[in-house]
Computed example of a mutant assay.
Amino acid sequence: MAMTCPFFRLPVELRLHIYSFAVLHNPSITIGSAELIGSHPDIIHRLYGGKRNPYPGIPENHEPVVEACYNASLLCTTNPATVPLSVATPLPDESHEHPHTAHLALLLVNRQVNDELTSHLKILKNSRISLFLAYPHGLHVCRTLTPHLLRQARSVHIAGNYTSRTFCSARAACVVPTGPKIKYNGGAAPDSTTQLGELIASLFGPHATHAVQKMELRIYYSGEDSYSTVWGDDASPTVIALRNIYYGEVGIEVWRGRFGTGVYLTARPTVDGERKRVVSTTWRRLEEGRPGEPECGSWIVDPEWPEWRHEAVASDGRKGDLVVRATPITGH
C-alpha cells in the first residue's frame, strides 16, 4: 500500500499558509560577488574551512553573495563590495553546494507541491520581489546557485561593465585579447553571453517561462571608442538582449561620453498583450570623469534604485538630446 505524504494530510488552507511563509517577502534581493580582504591564512580558511570550496566561475578570492535586500555596493564597480576578514567575521551559513532556501526545498518535495507552490506564486503577485544582478558575476551566481528566484521576481535589474577582449573597433575584426586577465575559481570564466541570453529569453522570448513587469539592463562600456563595441561586438550585452527579446516594449538610452558609453535598456510586456516588439531609442550625453562630475563607470547604478517605475519613463537628460520614436516590429 502506497504511503501518503504527511504534508498532504494537512488542510489546503494550512498548506497555502506554509507556501506563503516560504515565499521571500523581502521586496528586493541583490546578487553579486565580493572580494575577500584579509591575511592569506584568513582567506584560505574562509574559502576551504569546514566543507567549503571556492565557488566556480567567479574571480579568485571572491565569494558569492545573495542578500535579501537592495545593496548597491554589490552592483557598483567603482566602489565594489568586499568582505573584510577578522576573528569576528562570521563564517558562511552553509556550503555553496547546498543553497536550499525554504522555497527551493518545497519545490523539490514532489510534483504536486511544485505545482501548488507555482500556482500560489501567480496569485501572490504583490509579494513578488525585485531581483538585482551584478553583471557578469551576479548573473552567473543567479543562474547556477539561485535560478529558482526568477519564479518569484516581478522585475529583474542587471548592472555592470563590459569590456570586449576580441572586438577591435578600428578594424571591426577579432584580435588577440588584451588587458589584465582575471583568474577565476575553477580555472574557467563563465559563459556570460549564453547565461544572459537564456535569462532574457526566459522573460521575453518566444517561449518565455517567467512573467515579469519590467527588466532593466544598465551596461557601461569603457573607453573612448566604446560606442562601436555596443553594436559591433556579437557578445555585447546590448546585442544579446535585443537578440533575445522577441515581444515587448523596448526602450534604449545610449549615453555617450569622453571616457565611455552607457546603455540603459528596458523591456516590459506590451500594454495590449499583442505579440510584437516596439523599440524606441534616445541618445544622451554622459558627463563623467572631470572635476565636479561623477566617477567614470558609476553611471551603472541607478540612483533611484531599488524604486522603479512600471511605465516607460525616459531618464533626465540635456536639452537637445536625440530621440528616435517607437517603431513597432511584429513577429521576429
Results as ranks from 00 to 15, higher is better:
residue 1 M to R: 06
residue 1 M to A: 15
residue 2 A to H: 07
residue 2 A to Y: 01
residue 3 M to I: 11
residue 6 P to Y: 12
residue 14 L to M: 15
residue 24 L to C: 10
residue 24 L to H: 05
residue 28 S to D: 14
residue 35 E to S: 13
residue 36 L to A: 07
residue 38 G to C: 10
residue 38 G to S: 08
residue 43 I to Q: 08
residue 44 I to S: 00
residue 46 R to A: 11
residue 47 L to P: 06
residue 50 G to Q: 07
residue 50 G to P: 10
residue 50 G to A: 10
residue 53 N to V: 07
residue 56 P to Y: 04
residue 67 E to P: 00
residue 78 T to R: 07
residue 82 T to P: 03
residue 89 T to G: 09
residue 98 H to S: 15
residue 100 H to Y: 05
residue 101 T to F: 08
residue 103 H to R: 07
residue 106 L to Y: 00
residue 115 D to N: 15
residue 124 L to D: 11
residue 126 N to D: 14
residue 127 S to C: 11
residue 130 S to G: 11
residue 131 L to K: 10
residue 134 A to P: 01
residue 150 L to K: 06
residue 151 R to Q: 07
residue 152 Q to G: 00
residue 157 H to A: 05
residue 158 I to P: 11
residue 163 T to M: 10
residue 167 F to T: 02
residue 168 C to E: 15
residue 178 T to C: 03
residue 181 K to V: 13
residue 196 L to M: 09
residue 216 E to P: 00
residue 221 Y to D: 05
residue 224 E to F: 02
residue 226 S to V: 08
residue 238 T to A: 12
residue 240 I to W: 01
residue 261 T to P: 04
residue 261 T to E: 09
residue 272 D to P: 02
residue 274 E to D: 10
residue 276 K to R: 10
residue 281 T to E: 14
residue 290 R to K: 13
residue 299 W to V: 12
residue 299 W to T: 04
residue 300 I to T: 02
residue 306 P to L: 04
residue 307 E to V: 02
residue 309 R to H: 15
residue 322 L to T: 04
residue 327 T to W: 08
residue 327 T to D: 08
residue 331 G to P: 03
